[in-house]
Simulated assay, not measured.
Amino acid sequence: MNYRFGLILIISSCLSACFPSENNTLTFMAVGDMPYHLPEDFERFDRLIQRINTANPDFSLHVGDIKSGGTPCSDAYFTTIKGYFDQFEQPLIYTPGDNEWTDCHREACGGYDPEERLDKLRQLFYSTDQSQGKNPMTLQRQNSWEGFEKFPENARWQQAAITFGTFHVIGSNNNFKLDSAALNDEFYERELANNFWLKQLFEQARETQSRGIVLVLHAGLDYQARNERNGHASFVQLLREQVLDFGKPVLLLYGDHHRFMVDQPLRDSIGKTITNFTAVQVFGDRDMHAVRVVVSPENPNLFLIDPFYVAEN
C-alpha cells in the first residue's frame, strides 16, 4: 500500500463493534530529533512550539534526540531544552534518544561518561510523576515498581480509552555494543525493564478494554534480524506477540532517521503483514515539523495521522 505525503492516513481495520460506547476524541502532536543545528534551530523550535500551542492539542510527545550527535551534552544545554519543553502550553511527554547520552563520549559532545549523562537526564526530566509543559499531566512511572527504580523515563497513562506508554528503546543498536570486550550491563538491565513495561502496558489495555494502544520510543526498530547482534530483537519479538494477541489498533511513534514515514513493518510467522500495527516516524533534523494524530472513536479505524507543517521551518 502506498501512502501519499500530506494526506490523512487511516490505519488498522477493526470494526466499530470493537470499541466501547464512549465517544471521546483526542488530538496530540509528535515531534523528535530536534533541535539539531545550533543556534539557528532554537528559533525554529520555538516557532514550532508556538504553532503547536495555537493548534491546542491535548498533549504533545517528543520521541527523543534533543540534540545532534555532535553537539555538547552539557548540563546547561539540557536545562535549555527543559526550558523549551516548558513553553508547551499543554503537557509534553519526552522519552530519551541516543544522542543525549550514548553519544556523549565523543570529543565534540564534551567527552562525558554516557551513563553519567543518562543519570543527569533522569534527574532533570523525570524526577517527579509529572510530565513537562506549562500544564503538566500526572504519569505512572516505571520506577514505582519494585526492582525497576532506575527507570522513571518509562511512563504510561490513559486518555479517551487509549493506553499510552513510553519506552527507553533507542538508536545506535539500543546501546548494545558488539565488540567482544563489552559487558553491556546497562543494555541488559534496560532491556529487561522495557520488556516488562511492554507486557504491563498491554495487560493494562486488556484489563481496561482500551480501544487501542500508542507506544512511544526513539529507535527505528530492526524488525527483521533476530540474531544476537540486534539490540532490538527481544523487544520486537515481544511486541509482535502482544500486538497479535491484543487484536486492536496499535500505533508506534518513533524518530531516529529524520523522515516522516508511515509503515506497517510487523509480519506474522508466515510473513503476512500484521494489519493492526502501524509505525509512524516523525520529522526531524532539518525538517522541523510535527505529526498530528487524532483519535476518532466513531471511525472504525481509530487513528488518523496527518503531517503538521510549519511553512517557515
Rank of each mutant, 00 (worst) to 15 (best):
R240S: 14
R190H: 10
Q130L: 15
G271R: 09
H37K: 08
F277A: 06
P96T: 07
D98M: 12
W197D: 00
G133C: 06
R226H: 14
Y309Q: 02
P249Y: 09
E312A: 04
P96A: 03
D268R: 15
N175K: 12
D129R: 10
P20D: 15
M137F: 05
L238V: 00
E153K: 05
E116C: 02
V216A: 04
S296N: 13
Q158R: 13
L118W: 04
Q204C: 06
I270G: 05
R259V: 06
D222Y: 05
G64F: 06
L48F: 00
P39F: 11
E189S: 13
F196T: 15
Q281L: 01
I66H: 00
H168Y: 14
C18K: 13
V236T: 11
A279Q: 01
A193L: 04
A233T: 12
R117G: 00
N135K: 10
H105D: 04
T54A: 02
N24Y: 08
R106K: 13
I11H: 12
T163H: 03
G6Y: 15
L244G: 12
G69Y: 11
P265H: 02
G147S: 10
E241T: 09
E146H: 03
A17N: 09
F19L: 06
V282D: 00
G69A: 11
T80W: 04
F42S: 09
C73F: 08
F125N: 03
R206L: 05
S234I: 05
T138H: 05
G147V: 02
E149R: 04
L238W: 08
R226W: 02
A108G: 03
Q50M: 08
S68L: 05
K272Q: 03
Y188T: 08
V63L: 09
